[in-house]
């Protein structure tokens, strides 16, 4: 079964195969240390990444820590 979905990651449309937030982060190939993820403006704790199911048209926001005063 092809379970490709399209959602928005930091406002960019993205199609992916997979169903969980952890799948998405793996496909993005970004460091997972120092980042936080929110779906529809709710923070998703790291402990729930593997069990958080993604759906078509979801808005995912990924934040990273950067230098600042």
């Amino acid at each position: 079964m092809n379970n490709e979905i399209t959602l928005y990651v930091n406002d960019h449309p993205l199609s992916l195969v997979g169903t969980t937030l952890a799948d998405l982060l793996e496909q993005l190939d970004k460091p997972t240390q120092g980042i936080a993820v929110a779906i529809d403006h709710e923070v998703v704790p790291k402990s729930r990444w593997a069990t958080t199911l993604l759906a078509d048209n979801m808005n995912v926001f990924i934040f990273e820590s950067i230098a600042g005063g």
Binding site: N10, K30, P31, I62, F63, E64, S65, I66, A67, G69
Partner: peptide, 16 residues
């Protein structure tokens, strides 16, 4: 430190 939306195209400096 600050937070910002991740730039999906570029890798940023790892200061952590």
């Amino acid at each position: 430190l600050s937070l910002r939306r991740m730039d999906l195209k570029h890798q940023s400096d790892n200061i952590l």
